[in-house]
């Protein structure tokens, strides 16, 4: 449990948000040409990092907008929040 700064609403409790998993997984441009292995990779395989992870969150009980978060999964500390479509901030 922690505080997330929604880029649209500001600081809110984590329980207002729902996690959308690993960020920057690009949807295949030509789905019909994908092999089974590539589909499995897109749909199921995850880095599941212990450490700094790029992930998507949705302010489900607020503005309902999606955005990206950089969070350390080993201590739940949030390093940065940025909007969809934006490049992750360089540190």
């Amino acid at each position: 449990m922690f505080i997330i700064t929604c880029p649209f609403c500001g600081e809110r409790d984590q329980s207002e948000f729902s996690a959308g998993g690993e960020a920057h997984i690009v949807r295949p441009k030509q789905p019909t040409e994908l092999s089974d292995d590539e589909w499995a990779d897109f749909l199921f395989m995850r880095k599941n990092i212990k450490g700094v992870q790029f992930e998507r969150w949705n302010h489900a009980h607020g503005c309902r907008k999606w955005f990206n978060v950089i969070r350390d999964t080993s201590n739940d500390k949030i390093h940065a929040v940025y909007k969809m479509g934006e490049k992750p901030p360089q540190k």
Binding site: S18, A19, N48, I49, K50, Q53, E55, T73, S74, D76
Partner: peptide, 8 residues
């Protein structure tokens, strides 16, 4: 479970 990835 918590609904997000965490190793805490």
């Amino acid at each position: 479970t918590d609904a997000y990835v965490s190793y805490t």
